[in-house]
Amino acid sequence: MILFPSKPSIVACSAVAGPVESKSVFYSYFDSVSEDERWGQKTNEQGHSKMIQEACDIVMKKADLKNLDVDFFLSGDLVNQMTPTNFAARELAISFIGLFSACATSVSSVIIASLLTEVGASRFAIAGAASQHNAIERQFRYPLDYGAQKPATAQWTVTAAGYALIGKHDPKLPSVVAATVGKVVDYGEVSPFHMGGAMAPAAYDTITSHLKKRHQKITDYDLIMTGDLGKIGLKILKAMFAQTDATQEELEVFRDAGAEYYGEDEAFQSGASGAGCSASVYFSYIEQQMKTGRYKRVLLVATGALLSPMSFQQGETIPCTAHAIEITME
């Protein structure tokens, strides 16, 4: 566990999403929703990059900053070698570290940004993650137009980007007070169509470790929100806590961004996933709810499955991780 005594603040946030995400229950919290999933570019990957740029431009504009004022850009995506993020960083011209924690990058990037702020190396840092459905599906699964039947546990990769601008402490803003960097946990799940089942143990491990080291109970938090376990994964996580004698009241503290993303629409099966899933919910809805005072203290636990299509074909199980940040509002 890491403590941040200087409490770096989330100065501003931005969330940008694609056309399918207009069906999201979080739609009204997004800053911009594109009608074109390629953002007017020739390829899905270029569109992915453009979406990241747009989200970063919005977050800088909200804080009235220029690229030169930002010290670090910390971000990642799921495409091989993270080219969409790398290419966005080329346009942004901000000191950049690409981070890969799969769908947990939204939080791992904020942890590093907070550390850089804590040690005084950064005045402002942009942290976050993104995913573009078409580019990711193509890489991890089948071609988009291939007619395949997916099980009920399957999740839909979102087209969305979420970014937070991390700066020095401001008592009027949500602030990062502590974080837990997750271990890599593998309970032997092999199906890439059951990410929730693969990632739930990682979320459980990180949450229990964070609570223990912080000497806190579940109910000390207004909300513990996991990233993209989906409906089934969230159910599994709650069952794990129920097994260790968590009460109903405690279980109600848990929510999952992916499970709620598309509401009850069955076309999305178990819910949403992707690096942009937790990022676009944490850095829009959650931030706004904290600013209005609905939540005073939240634990955001982004979950990531660290597999590749090749590792799956070679019969490897799916190692997963979860990173957590504790955010408070005074």
Binding site: A152, Y187, G188, E189, H194, G197, I236, A239, M240, Q243
Partner: peptide, 18 residues
Amino acid sequence: MDPQEYQQIEQQNTPPTP
């Protein structure tokens, strides 16, 4: 929680393939 115990919880909470 050991992996066997977890797999039981996972199975109980995963809808069966129809």
